[in-house]
Design a protein around this nucleic acid. Sequence first.
DNA 1: GACATCTGGTTGACATGTCATCAATCTGCC
DNA 2: GGCAGATTGATGACATGTCAACCAGATGTC
Lengths: 157, 157
Amino acid sequence: MERPRWLDEREQSAWRGYRRMRRLLDLELARELMRDAGLSEPDYDVLSDLAETPDRRLRLSELADRMLWSRSRLSHHLTRMQQRGLVTREECAADGRGAVVALTAEGRRAVEAAAPGHVAAVRRHLIDLLTPDEIAALDALTHRVVDHLTGPDDARR
Amino acid sequence: MERPRWLDEREQSAWRGYRRMRRLLDLELARELMRDAGLSEPDYDVLSDLAETPDRRLRLSELADRMLWSRSRLSHHLTRMQQRGLVTREECAADGRGAVVALTAEGRRAVEAAAPGHVAAVRRHLIDLLTPDEIAALDALTHRVVDHLTGPDDARR
DNA sequence: GACATCTGGTTGACATGTCATCAATCTGCC
DNA sequence: GGCAGATTGATGACATGTCAACCAGATGTC
């Protein structure tokens, strides 16, 4: 192994800041979402992804891919949400193995009630604290990193 | 509730990019760290925080605060790490209730073996993909958000 | 000094996420 | 058609994180 190139001071500071922000932002957004809407962040993500599809229903594998979740995790989480009446499972006509998740009326009500407050929280704790330039930089940089990580496997060693 | 100010296109894109990056970066760094060093990210964080203190030991509450973990979580995690021989618990001379975590020789070996590879991964998947300006922007913006979130409670509504 | 209260840490019950495995079904190939 | 192998989703065992209750020792008040 070559001699490691450690992070310089600025890089170190950015990396630590990123991780600290990540943690604090997560905690706060989750806290407010639970307090104001009774939903966890994973709940909200599932519901809002479903609410955005034309049919308000998706194949499990499709949803899992969008959310970057394992199928197992999604399956477990959906059974919990199903028990709370937020979603239902349906058979898939096109593929006998497949299943489809659909938003229930109650699930729809839940996201619609939660969304304004959640967006406001994202603004309050992140977006509105940044300059337009910073938002542009964040946009560019995150997408570059995402592209790198989803590129050909050998790019990841 | 006032009419919500939704995110505009750029803001939306930055927010989604951030969350996607967060997830993918996490998965990849955790995957490599486990594969190359047999440590989880929480393991690594505990060990490297300890390794950086002059005495290689810390009060539990101090460590919990630095890591933004609950005491309960830290306590559970330390008993697991203790069973693997990475850390030990000691009594605290100054406060009869208190406890101190100390790095074992093995724990020290583990971080020192893990660190170069982990730093390299952070470079490869994040730092080295950014321009100096972007690093500076990330540094500034994350710290501003952190300061906001750790400021007076009423700033958070 | 004695009592009430606070604080540091542990614990157990429970929620959530991961991993390996399984059954059903689909696909490609003969 | 029929079989081998791949894919889809469910499931159970286990690892990890959260929450509330608890104990022991510190601190404050009279």
